[in-house]
Design a protein around this nucleic acid. Sequence first.
DNA 1: CCCGTCGTCAACCCTACGGTTGAAGAAAGC
DNA 2: GCTTTCTTCAACCGTAGGGTTGACGACGGG
Lengths: 124, 124
Amino acid sequence: MADSLSKAFSALADPTRRDLVARLAVADATVGELAKPYDVSVQAVSKHLRVLEEAGLVTKTRDAQRRSVHLEADVLDLATAWLERYRRAAEARYDRLDAVLAELDGGAGTTDTAPIAEQEGTAS
Amino acid sequence: MADSLSKAFSALADPTRRDLVARLAVADATVGELAKPYDVSVQAVSKHLRVLEEAGLVTKTRDAQRRSVHLEADVLDLATAWLERYRRAAEARYDRLDAVLAELDGGAGTTDTAPIAEQEGTAS
DNA sequence: CCCGTCGTCAACCCTACGGTTGAAGAAAGC
DNA sequence: GCTTTCTTCAACCGTAGGGTTGACGACGGG
């Protein structure tokens, strides 16, 4: 379907799902426990958890008829790495006032900035 | 409409928009320049840029009839901070094997973990 | 064994999203 | 002034997303 990063960001775009992640960061929990605080149906929460699972953000282990939901760090790591990379680049450019230089110069080769942008697929 | 974090993650969920961010991390560019590499219409790219703009990830300044698009670091910062926070919590829990302890103990106060989960709106 | 609980599957509704084409607005160039 | 270039607005189309309700599968407890 979509790449890992797209699924991760898409999953985290929903406030309910972000809240689920925040709560799972504290401790594992069952679907029922997780669903309680929200005023939506259990099925809706189950769907949210499936989205998080398909994004690789959580895993479920069957504990009797309950499912224990566990937060996984790997995809959070991946997303953090992506953001951190371009965040740094944006801040560096801001600090160096490259925008102003480019405006004055006309956009020619003002700096020797290395090619930071890369293809999506090349992420390790 | 939606909160800042939702708009940011939602904007970054699209591969084309992530690529735009990656390219804008290197240098500012006009809409036309940004649209060139993709095989979609310029209008589609313009829409993508509007999404990024409404998420606060980029700003546009009118330079004659061209619009210069500039990457902003602030929202990237916000999203990074959110991810980093729960990433750390997830990794810490993984390292300390809290899941196993909780399973054996029944979930009672096994650790002195501070209340990490917070409300969405409290982000600075 | 039957019942109650936990969770998911399935079908459906409505809105949002990414794409298209066509037209319009704004500014430089001739 | 008229045309050309750059960008956005508007209307439309198909699909994916989040919600609902209803029914079903899998277990543990009486």
